[in-house]
C-alpha cells in the first residue's frame, strides 16, 4: 500500500469501518510511514474533539420572540379550526342578527364559566405563557420569606432602577451585552427555581440559586457604576 491508497481509506480506518483485510494492510503501512501516522493522529483528534465542541448561546430575546409567535398563532389556529369545523357541519358561512349575537354571547359566557370551573379542577389544556408557573408563585412566596433572598430582590430592584437611567448612554454594544448577561442570569435563576420547585431539598441547587442571585447583583452593580 502506498500513501495515496492509504489516504483514500484512512477516514474509514479512523471510524473503524474497514474490512479486516484492508485494516491489516493500512496498519502495516502506518507502522512504516510517519507522514500517514500524523494524518491518522490528526484525524483521530478532529473526530474526538468534534464531539466536544462548545455550545453557543442565542441572543437574549429569542424565547420572547418564540413566545410571541406562539401566542399569535394560538387564537388564529383555534379560531380557524373551530370555524372550519362549523363550516363543515353546515356547509356555509355565518351571518348573525343582533338578538342571535346576544344569545351566542350569553351562551359563550355560560360555557366560559363552566370552562373555568373545569379548568380549575383539572389544569389547563391550552398553553398560557404567563411569566411564572403556579409552582413558581409558591416558591416566590417562600423566597420572600427567606431574609437573604428578600434582601437580594430588594437590592436588585434598586440597582435596576439606577441601571435603567444610565442604559441609553452605554452605546449599542454594551447595551446588548448587558441584555445578554441578564438573560443568562434570569435563565439560570429560572432553571434553579424550577428544579427547586420539584425537589426543595436539592442543596446544590440552593447553592447555585444563591450564586445566581449574587451574580445578578454583581452585574447590576457593575453596570450601575457607569
Amino acid at each position: 500500500m502506498n500513501c495515496q491508497e492509504c489516504e483514500e481509506i484512512i477516514s474509514d480506518y479512523v471510524d473503524g469501518a474497514l474490512e479486516p483485510g484492508a485494516q491489516t494492510k493500512i496498519e502495516h503501512h502506518l507502522a512504516n510511514c510517519e507522514a500517514c501516522r500524523a494524518v491518522r493522529d490528526d484525524l483521530l483528534q478532529i473526530v474526538h474533539f468534534s464531539k466536544q465542541l462548545p455550545l453557543h448561546i442565542p441572543t437574549s430575546d429569542l424565547w420572547s420572540r418564540i413566545q410571541t409567535e406562539i401566542e399569535a398563532e394560538q387564537p388564529k389556529t383555534w379560531w380557524a379550526r373551530s370555524k372550519a369545523r362549523l363550516q363543515n357541519l353546515y356547509g356555509r358561512d355565518f351571518k348573525f342578527s343582533i338578538p342571535q349575537f346576544a344569545a351566542i354571547a350569553a351562551a359563550c359566557i355560560i360555557v366560559a364559566a363552566i370552562g373555568v370551573v373545569v379548568w380549575q379542577k383539572n389544569n389547563s389544556q391550552v398553553p398560557q405563557f404567563a411569566n411564572a408557573a403556579p409552582a413558581d408563585n409558591q416558591l416566590q412566596t417562600k423566597l420572600a420569606n427567606d431574609p437573604s433572598f428578600q434582601e437580594f430582590e430588594q437590592t436588585i430592584k434598586q440597582l435596576k432602577e439606577s441601571v435603567e437611567q444610565r442604559k441609553d448612554t452605554w452605546g449599542p454594544e454594551l447595551r446588548l451585552s448587558f441584555e445578554r448577561n441578564m438573560t443568562s442570569i434570569d435563565q439560570s435563576l429560572n432553571d434553579c427555581r424550577q428544579l427547586l420547585s420539584r425537589n426543595p431539598n436539592d442543596e446544590t441547587c440552593k447553592e447555585l440559586l444563591k450564586n445566581a442571585y449574587s451574580e445578578k447583583v454583581r452585574v447590576l452593580q457593575g453596570f450601575a457604576n457607569f
Partner: peptide, 12 residues
C-alpha cells in the same frame, strides 16, 4: 397537554 411551563422548560 397544554402545560406552557413544560414547553418553556423544554426550550430552556
Amino acid at each position: 397537554a397544554g402545560d406552557a411551563a413544560a414547553f418553556e422548560q423544554l426550550y430552556h
